[in-house]
Design a protein around this nucleic acid. Structure first.
Lengths: 336, 336
DNA sequence: GTGAAAGCGCTAACAG
DNA sequence: CTGTTAGCGCTTTCAC
């Protein structure tokens, strides 16, 4: 492997000059710089991140810790983080819990603390107390995306307002019999978010003087399959079913749409459905939803961390991310 | 930060002994080893991967290069790779092209070659010649998952056989008017796979003496939205439409199912639909499909790379990954 | 079974 | 503007 010394020797300059020239630091004459760049290119020199990291204390990499990759929200945030990091010349080290708790302790202890990263983004994780304190003890800057963790800065939408907007959209259409498909916290995934949304649903209903039927509130684990099962249950009785369903995620809403097809219920004629997310499939499915943009959230959160690593004062207050009602064909006036 | 020297001093042993003890190397007395382990734990010592990497030449990290994260197949493979790596104590460095070609050159040149990783997994990428040669020049072991790249070892299913099995399932049900929704190679994503599947479709049709209607072969880019658009077009004419559609991916098949709902076509009464993948949504959607398991593929590919890094002879022939017909409700006998 | 010492390839003062 | 000189914190011979 060709090293910085090869480049230096071949040019008759010092390694310090090569280092400075290649990193764009000041104090190098333009002509030297271009000679260095050319020679480095010519020799196929690529700096060793290990050596650079050891010497400088900066690894030029950020870590992302998430409960699972294969899930729309998480992979979208990851995409946004990666985009931002890539543009800044940073690498992204991934830590997934893989949908289970296996090796969870090792992830926290071994990998993350292994000084491989300059900062850490944590996505929607439900942390144990000891994990939370490991996190707080981390000397590197940290940020949470998607589900607040006490004591750590947080990027995300206003879940309460998002849920309220969804329910009020239904109420605005005249619905009074409104069910709710709840998200969940399986496998260590954060359960603040579904809880906040559920609370907002209840409060909004109450604020409008509407009654909640306990059998219309069903658990769907944020997912299609569980959402479908929940919806089949909620909509089983034609004589006593809601005219609208608010789902804490679009995937569950797809489950409701599917259930409607299976049960022969017309959407939106007999049933209105609204979700939260604006999942990739929501547009082609014609699903009304509250849009959030996880890609932007990831990009934004990574940007803050990068700014701090570049010496900017730590952002204390992080603006709430936007959400927006997107009306499509799955919601309509209450049937009479 | 506490270093290996802190541990050594506090115990009155050499750093070499600490290093050996903690890495489980032979030549350390059991009692010394346990004292070291205890003290390391006590002091909260975590080795620096940069220092270890610099000294040993091994980074204990593998890279994954993919066109995009936010897509079922890719995120599932990633999950599998991560699972395997995590279990082996390796870290995973992620390189996504983010669905576009931006910064593509930099990814190849800068990050990947930056000696941050001991090996590289490449997913379904359509590489330029120069990228391919960069890859072949990489001194570290490399493996391709999901779409073959000439000259690089490859993990994946037999796409031709998978497509044939799908089409023959339809033929077995009596269908003769069979359309095809083609995948695509947008944004540098591999286009071998969709091409192989399409070729197998044509050949299977021909082998059974069946005619292909050009207007029944439509591009769907592997996706729901495009699949829906393609299906609406393919199924537009009630007097002249296929009775079955073979889709190169489940997501496109969802598009066909959606189109059927929109057009009032009964599935499987009037139209049979089959995909490839066994996407997470396929079971709840009742979609007949050819199952492949990207999680297993990622796990398997990572395992081979890890074995080689541990000194096992390079695997030259890599077994083809299995696929399997999963019959659900979206296919049925041809209507008469 | 253990220690001493020489790097790994870079960066970061400090001189000049 | 450029060079010299110490390390960064480990691993790895080679002795003992």
């Amino acid at each position: 492997m060709t090293s910085i010394e090869d480049v230096a020797k071949s040019l008759g300059v010092s390694t310090a000059t090569v280092s400075r020239a290649l990193r764009g630091l000041p104090g190098v004459s333009p002509s030297t710089r271009s000679r260095v760049e050319q020679e480095a290119q010519h020799l196929g020199y690529v700096p060793s991140s290990a050596a650079a990291g050891l010497a400088s204390g900066r690894t030029m990499a950020l870590g992302v810790l998430l409960p699972q990759i294969e899930r729309w929200y998480f992979s979208a945030v990851l995409e946004g983080v990666d985009r931002r990091l890539r543009a800044a010349g940073y690498d992204l080290v991934l830590f997934s819990l893989g949908g289970s708790g296996v090796n969870r302790g090792r992830v926290f202890h071994r990998s993350i603390l292994r000084k491989r990263i300059d900062g850490l983004l944590v996505l929607c994780l439900e942390l144990t107390d000891s994990e939370r304190s490991s996190l707080l003890e981390l000397e590197s800057p940290t940020m949470v995306v998607g589900g607040a963790v006490e004591g750590v800065r947080h990027v995300g939408i206003d879940d309460g307002a998002a849920a309220r907007d969804a329910v009020e959209h239904l109420i605005g259409l005249g619905h009074t019999r409104i069910g709710h498909l709840r998200g969940g916290g399986s496998f260590g995934i954060d359960f603040q978010v579904p809880r906040i949304r559920e609370t907002a649903y209840r409060r909004t209903m109450a604020d409008h003087g509407l009654v909640i039927h306990p059998e219309w509130e069903v658990f769907g684990d944020f997912r299609f399959k569980e959402g479908l099962a929940g919806a089949l249950q909620m909509l089983a009785d034609p004589g006593n079913r809601p005219t609208a369903v608010f789902c804490s995620s679009d995937e569950m809403a797809f489950g409701v749409l599917r259930a409607a097809v299976e049960l022969g219920i017309d959407v939106p004629g007999e049933l209105s459905v609204i979700g939260i997310d604006d999942h990739e499939f929501s547009d082609p499915m014609g699903l009304t939803t509250i849009r959030q943009s996880p890609v932007e959230q990831g990009d934004f959160a990574a940007g803050i961390l990068l700014d701090e690593l570049r010496g900017q004062p730590a952002a204390d207050v992080i603006p709430v991310q936007p959400h927006q009602l997107i009306v499509r064909g799955s919601t309509g006036p209450v049937p009479r």
